[in-house]
Design a binder for these strands. Structure first.
Lengths: 144, 144
DNA sequence: CAGTTTTGGGACAACAGAGTCCTTTTTCTA
DNA sequence: TAGAAAAAGGACTCTGTTGTCCCAAAACTG
């Protein structure tokens, strides 16, 4: 599994935020029921994204969360890195510490290429683009 | 993390087997100390690979395990699939069940491309090729 | 045949990720 | 000002992965 459940939920929620009312604070409760994700668990994920700076939060009635920047300026990679950490795009596939150009593992070269391709792809996708196509083509963000 | 620890260990061990004496049975104990992997844990991994058919085992003194086929006929992808299961190369990145061309998630297209690229790469790498370059370039399979 | 060396496999401990629940803090509204 | 609504955050449970240990089965060696 490439992405942890936490990250899968986080990405789905960020895409949802990019499709729904861009500038309004949206309550975690409403997002959790729209996406069928445990409310309490989603709360934790949003707390991390808020601390990381990708979200703004506001307490009290009509409070909630919203993207801290325009969706056109947030890439998928940023969201993934915010949750999984930057190691995902630097680590050795075989888990060997210090694996790099100078002390490579047998898969270093191959994996570096594949991983960089993936990183480029994720950098090329903004929440805005994904959100738009999600709305336009009615793509799904939940199980059902 | 793309690969579980179990799979990382398994791949390292399979590459090791491809470099070391191709036709002799090698004891798990010697592999575990060569690669600095817990003996008991490695035993479990080899048991799975044996059941799966990638390894042959033999008990008793001078027993051990060896590749069931020439290293030139085992691809990296096979090893990964044997341990992680085929879902790794079919699953939705966002974890949505039934995600596919007909009911795609917003990342379906992008992810399909990236995942298929990766699968092709892993299919193109045989244990023989990796083993040879490991020996030739003295690449590392352990922490140290 | 007895003892030793090896893999096979079950049971268990330790740990991390996933998920739940409860209390506190902030903010709004009546 | 009192109550309600929302996020913040701590404590906890559950579950799967990782890792350890022990005993059984197979095969060899004296």
């Amino acid at each position: 599994m490439l992405l942890s459940k936490t990250c899968q939920y986080g990405v789905r929620a960020m895409i949802y935020l990019a499709t729904d009312s861009p500038d309004k604070y949206v309550s975690v409760r409403s997002i959790s029921s729209a996406l069928d994700i445990s409310f309490h668990f989603l709360t934790k994920i949003f707390q991390r994204l808020t601390r990381y700076g990708l979200l703004l939060s506001y307490r009290g009635p009509n409070g909630g969360i919203k993207l801290s920047r325009p969706a056109s300026q947030i890439t998928l990679k940023e969201v993934v890195v915010a949750i999984e950490g930057p190691e995902l795009f630097t680590e050795c596939v075989l888990g060997l510490p210090g694996c790099g150009a100078d002390r490579p593992c047998p898969l270093h070269h191959t994996w570096t290429i594949a991983r960089d391709d993936l990183a480029r792809m994720l950098e090329g996708e903004t929440l805005d683009q994904i959100g738009s196509s999600t709305v336009r083509e009615r793509l799904r963000l939940r199980h059902r």
